[in-house]
């Protein structure tokens, strides 16, 4: 059962609507697609979560 839960990494992909910069981070409780997240480190524009998905688990 434990194995079942650890097979995947859940990630949130943030994107800057202005410069298009993308940032991949671990999914955090409360994340959802189109939620505003942090500010873009390049142009300081608020970023949004573009995608949330599971990718194969890498220890």
């Amino acid at each position: 059962m434990e194995e079942l839960e650890r097979r995947e990494n859940i990630v949130s992909i943030e994107e800057c609507p202005r410069c298009g910069l993308k940032n991949k981070r671990k999914f955090q409780q409360g994340d959802y697609v189109l939620k505003q997240s942090g500010k873009c480190p390049k142009c300081n524009t608020p970023m949004y979560i573009k995608l949330i998905y599971a990718e194969p688990f890498k220890p």
Binding site: I10, Q29, G30, L34, L51, I52
Partner: peptide, 20 residues
């Protein structure tokens, strides 16, 4: 439990990007 998108949600996902 954590409110993560399911594979079935790809249709609404595309439309959500269009209506952003």
């Amino acid at each position: 439990e954590e409110g993560q998108p399911l594979g079935d949600g790809v249709g609404p996902l595309v439309v959500s990007h269009l209506m952003k």
